[in-house]
Amino acid sequence: MTRKYSSLINNHIRSLLDTLADKSIEAQQYQETMTKLGMSLGDALLTKIDKEKSVYLASTVEDADFLARGVLTQLENHLDSVAFACFWNQRFSPFEIEDLTAAPIIKKYQEKTLNDVNYLIVIKSIISGACVVKTNLINLIQTITPDNIIIVAPVMYHTAQEKLKNEFDKNIYDKFQFIYFAEDDERTQEGEVIPGIGGMVYERLGFQGQDDKNRYIPEIVKQRRSQLIKASV
């Protein structure tokens, strides 16, 4: 096993990653750690973004109230507005092979924005086979035309970047940038990246598996939807 850290790493972020990898910590501490990592990723994003430009952030349902909230907190402290989308994906592998996993969208929350977006940011707690990121990105670019696509995660599997690029035409993958803190090169037969984020993220965050997380409506979605309704009245 070899873990490589990106140039963004510091002692604080390394400590947060070590906390995620600790399988003994409770769900609440895991959630808080994800939120803090999201804030650090938000700070990294702010160094890449022209603050006068439009930004759209997309997250999965399990990451919305934690990792994505941390990113949004930092971005919204410095940007006029950030549009948001949340996806509920149902992952399955018909042949029990991680790289053949599919992740169809069963529900989504997507805020309206201009068709032309300067920065489309797709965030995920860990990117391994990249099927969820691929599926959600394909859906987004059907209605959004981004100038830049930034793929963001605390941890990535070492083949994920190349695999994701191979799923898209050159005119799309040329827009890709990747922001991450650590890259791991070991994965179990079940698809868990080692040390990764310390296991399967649904259970670590306190969900009772995939079906439970897909019944969950994130607080951040409830809050933003309520604000949009009030603004339209």
Rank of each mutant, 00 (worst) to 15 (best):
L72N: 01
A68L: 07
C131N: 03
I172C: 03
Q74Y: 09
T73K: 07
V122I: 15
Q74S: 08
K124Q: 09
L114I: 07
E62V: 12
L114P: 00
E98G: 01
V82A: 06
L75K: 02
A153I: 08
M156Y: 00
L75N: 03
T60H: 11
C86H: 00
N115Q: 13
Y157I: 05
E52I: 13
M156R: 02
L164H: 03
L100W: 10
S81E: 15
K134L: 08
T135W: 00
E162V: 12
Y157D: 08
N115D: 13
V133M: 09
K134T: 06
G129P: 01
A153C: 12
R69F: 10
A160S: 15
S128M: 09
Q74G: 02
L164K: 04
V132N: 03
E167N: 06
Q90K: 10
T60N: 06
V117C: 11
L75R: 05
P94I: 09
M156Q: 02
N171S: 11
I127N: 01
S54G: 04
F66D: 02
L57Y: 10
V82L: 07
S128I: 08
K51R: 09
V82K: 11
D169E: 10
T145R: 13
E167H: 05
H78F: 15
N136V: 06
P104V: 09
W88R: 04
A102Y: 09
Q161S: 14
V155W: 08
F87D: 01
I127Y: 01
T101C: 12
P154E: 02
Y119N: 01
K112A: 14
I106W: 07
H78Q: 12
L114Q: 12
Y109H: 07
T143K: 14
Q142V: 05
N77D: 14
T159K: 07
V117I: 15
P154A: 06
G70R: 02
T145L: 11
L57M: 05
V71I: 14
Q90V: 07
S54F: 07
T143W: 02
P94G: 06
Y109R: 03
N77A: 14
T73D: 09
V132P: 01
L67C: 09
I126V: 15
E167R: 13
L164Y: 02
D99T: 10
N171Q: 10
